[in-house]
């Protein structure tokens, strides 16, 4: 049986996979930036975590729209080390990166 399979055309799963990849690449653009915010969030968090200890809840990422521009608001609360007198947090509103909206 297995030897017979050997001579058959290969399975249909690779076709399914390829069709899905093409379709979803298209749909993610037309149906909005899928989980762009989630992806950005994870990557920003990972980047910060490399240098500073940070709780996942201390980062908020929001996307807004104003006229013809999309805004990206990234808000990070980084606790100051216990070296400093007050555990105040540094607000680092990093970016209001404007990108042309699709």
């Amino acid at each position: 049986m297995n030897l017979l399979n050997f001579f058959k055309p290969r399975g249909t799963a690779p076709v399914a996979r390829e069709r899905l990849q093409i379709l979803l690449a298209h749909e993610r653009i037309t149906l909005g930036p899928r989980n762009l915010i989630a992806i950005l969030r994870d990557e920003i968090l990972a980047t910060i975590a490399k240098h500073v200890e940070i709780a996942p809840e201390a980062l908020t990422v929001k996307m807004g729209q104003a006229g013809s521009v999309s805004t990206l608001e990234i808000d990070v609360e980084i606790p100051t080390e216990k070296v400093s007198a007050k555990p105040a947090h540094q607000e680092a509103t990093l970016a209001k990166a404007a990108a042309a909206s699709r």
């Binding site: 749909e27 993610r28 149906l31 909005g32 899928r34 989980n35 915010i37 989630a38």
Partner: peptide, 8 residues
Amino acid sequence: DRIIGLLD
């Protein structure tokens, strides 16, 4: 994939 987009 659609649902993941909505969850986000």
